[in-house]
């Protein structure tokens, strides 16, 4: 089971990254839940979503201590960093977040995902981040993530190839970091 919180400004694709993870989990025949923040939280403040995937049935869709926190702006780091499970992982989009975590008991990755994705597709940062996550997850295959991307962009088939390229680049990037 993985419990993931993704947080950033509205419009950064925070909610859709969560959906990509959930769709990938379905392709992998796992159970999943996706719970967004909604309402005034979305306007001006931070948008976030809680994503869980598991071999078991998912009980609570709310997450008190995420295994993985993905942060797209500084307020989100302040808000959630203390909730991350000891031994968990914090990933920041270092194109936007210039702070480091104060936690000593978590794995910390600074990834300039906007810059990296822009080399392939300016709007591919989310899918690039999905790629970054796959080696960390270890239990969702590249093939399933590709199916998820194809599914989400079903109505815009033109953008599928460049997004798959972003996905693959993200996977390679993270594999190198983990070596």
């Amino acid at each position: 089971m993985n419990k993931i919180i993704i947080s950033g400004f509205g419009g950064q694709g925070v909610l859709s990254l969560g959906k990509f993870i959930s769709y990938s989990a379905i392709e992998q025949n796992l159970n999943t839940s996706w719970l967004p923040s909604y309402g005034p939280e979305m306007r001006g403040g931070t948008a976030n979503c809680s994503v869980i995937y598991s071999h078991e049935d998912i009980a609570a869709p709310v997450i008190d201590h995420p295994d993985i926190l993905i942060v797209f702006n500084e307020p989100s780091l302040d808000k959630f960093e203390n909730s991350v499970k000891a031994g968990g992982t914090i990933i920041i989009n270092s194109d936007i977040v210039h702070k480091k975590t104060t936690r000593k008991d978590v794995k910390f990755f600074e990834i300039p995902v906007d810059t990296l994705a822009a080399e392939i597709n300016k709007r591919g940062a989310n899918v690039y981040m999905l790629g970054v996550l796959l080696p960390l997850f270890g239990d969702i295959s590249e093939e399933c993530a590709i199916h998820a991307v194809e599914h989400v962009f079903e109505s815009k088939p033109k953008v599928i190839p460049s997004n798959i390229e972003c996905l693959k680049a993200g996977i390679e990037y993270m594999k190198k970091l983990l070596k």
């Binding site: 959930s22 379905i26 159970n31 999943t32 839940s33 996706w34 719970l35 967004p36 998912i58 869709p61």
Partner: peptide, 10 residues
Amino acid sequence: DGMLGQMMEP
């Protein structure tokens, strides 16, 4: 409730 209405599940 809002949680069940807004969340996604298979």
